[in-house]
């Protein structure tokens, strides 16, 4: 049954912000957008009832996971929805629904713990979700580290790797621009079947 009045909704663009524990996901979602809390939920299994988060509320069978959620409105026509995905393995089920229809993902990487970003990268590669790797500058300029990061993460040559400071709005938004440019390039590449020439 449809509403009689012609109503249009903006183009909703779903972007995921992933990365290892403490990589800066919450910081980035918060600096680039208006951040809102989003309670998702998890039905506890016996395996997770000993979780320290829940001491004192053992009687509760369902608990909530609060996900980072941010929104950027672009004029009347488009809205970006950013979702910071919880890093722990037991939340993979949340990723599966987030990945559906996502335009792409930002994988935040901390050079001190690069291996922490493997699971996210692996996940997006297998799901064919376009992604960029953003190296979060926790300790000064890391320009020289980009090739090393690319190498250590065995990234396809066309996956963009950029530096960012998740605390800086302009820097965070430029990462999103990189992602959208990457998606555009992939889309055009598919249309013309000319793949493999980055940049």
């Amino acid at each position: 049954m449809r509403d009689d009045r012609a109503r249009s909704v903006p183009t909703a663009i779903k972007i995921l912000v992933a990365g290892g524990f403490g990589a800066g996901k919450t910081t980035m979602v918060g600096t680039v957008s208006e951040i809102l809390p989003l309670h998702t939920e998890e039905v506890l299994t016996s395996a997770s009832t000993h979780s320290d988060d829940l001491s004192g509320v053992e009687a509760k069978r369902t608990t909530t996971v609060t996900m980072d959620f941010g929104r950027i409105t672009i004029g009347d026509s488009a809205v970006l929805y950013l979702f910071g995905t919880p890093g722990q393995d037991r939340f993979w089920f949340l990723w599966d629904e987030l990945a559906i229809g996502a335009l792409g993902a930002v994988v935040l990487a901390d050079t001190r713990r690069l291996a922490d970003s493997f699971p996210s990268i692996d996940y997006f590669e297998r799901r064919r979700v376009p992604f960029v790797v953003a190296v979060n500058c926790f300790h000064g300029n890391q320009q020289f580290e980009i090739p090393a990061v690319r190498n250590a993460l065995s990234l396809d040559p066309d996956v963009p790797v950029v530096l960012c400071d998740a605390r800086d709005r302009r820097s965070g938004r430029e990462v999103l621009v990189t992602l959208i440019e990457h998606v555009r390039a992939l889309t055009l590449g598919q249309a013309h079947t000319a793949v493999g020439t980055p940049g």
Binding site: S8, V9, T11, I13, I74, S77, A78, L80, G101, R173
Partner: peptide, 29 residues
């Protein structure tokens, strides 16, 4: 409640002019 039809079919990349508008918006807002 009415479930509204999305502007872009799920799983489809929005038109390029929208993506370009988003890029401009991200850089200048």
């Amino acid at each position: 409640v009415i479930r509204m039809a999305p502007a872009v079919a799920p799983g489809h990349v929005p038109d390029d002019d929208i993506l370009q508008a988003v890029i401009l918006g991200l850089r200048h807002a």
